[in-house]
Simulated scan of single mutants.
Amino acid sequence: MSLFDKLFGSHRQGDAPESRLPAERHAAVGASDAAHRAAQMLRAPTALMQLAEHEALAVVGFMRPRVFKRGTEIIRQGETADTGFMVLVLEGEITVESLMASRVNAATVKVLGPGSLIGEMALVDGAARSASCTASTEVKCAVLTRESLEALTTEQPATAAKLMTAVAQRLAERLRESSHKLQVYSKLVDTLQEEVDRLMPTPQGKHRS
């Protein structure tokens, strides 16, 4: 039996975890080896490694099961109406693509597997999705909705605060990576321009900045 089936086998996909009694939820995840494994995935370097084990386990208790067939577009770049969820991949792979202004076709950014997290940025700020995510295989995952996040905040505010802090740190790391890439790109452009100027000097002997 798969991790997904062990974790969610007793719940229908339409069940809302925030509707369960806290004692029922705590007992269900506390006694489940599969829930502990899912919590470990949530704490992986590809997800929210800043969470403590008990905090990740509490978050898992508020997640819903979802299965996406191969080829399903889970998140669409530019989407603004359906931004209230993030996804923890338990089984399968997801292709992340981004449509750049200078390109006609979307470029594959990365392929994500079990333990990966997607959609956390829009869950925080509600802004448009920054990339498209498509199931490249059948994907089984755990979803945290904004409603569940609000319920977690009410029931366990300290855990919810730690979750949001971990998400913020993850987003900050992405921004630093993007900034570094832009710096490398800028240096590459300058180097190429210098080489062009050397091979094809302008009358002034230098290019315009």
Rank of each mutant, 00 (worst) to 15 (best):
V111L: 13
D190G: 11
L99G: 09
R146F: 01
L175H: 08
L171E: 02
A172E: 00
A127H: 14
R129P: 10
L182N: 12
K140H: 01
S116D: 08
A101N: 09
T154E: 15
E147G: 14
C133A: 09
R129G: 08
M164W: 01
Q193P: 05
V167F: 09
M200H: 14
T159F: 15
V96R: 00
L192N: 06
L88A: 03
A128M: 00
V104M: 15
A151I: 01
L117T: 02
M86L: 10
S98T: 15
T145S: 03
G84Q: 08
P114T: 06
L99S: 11
I94Y: 05
L88P: 00
A158R: 07
G115V: 02
E150K: 14
R198D: 04
V184I: 10
I94A: 02
R170K: 12
G84N: 05
P201Y: 03
G84K: 04
A107N: 11
E147Q: 15
C133K: 04
L88V: 00
Q193W: 04
R103I: 01
T153S: 13
V196M: 06
A135V: 02
G115A: 01
V109F: 11
K162F: 12
G126W: 06
V87S: 00
A106S: 04
V111E: 13
E97F: 09
E177R: 10
P201A: 05
L175W: 09
E147P: 12
M86N: 07
V89E: 01
E93M: 14
T108M: 13
C133T: 00
Y185S: 15
E147K: 11
L175G: 10
A107Q: 13
A158H: 08
E173K: 14
K162P: 10
R176C: 11
T145P: 07
E138Y: 05
K162N: 15
G115M: 01
P203W: 05
T165L: 15
E177S: 11
E97L: 12
L188F: 12
L182C: 15
A106V: 02
D197P: 03
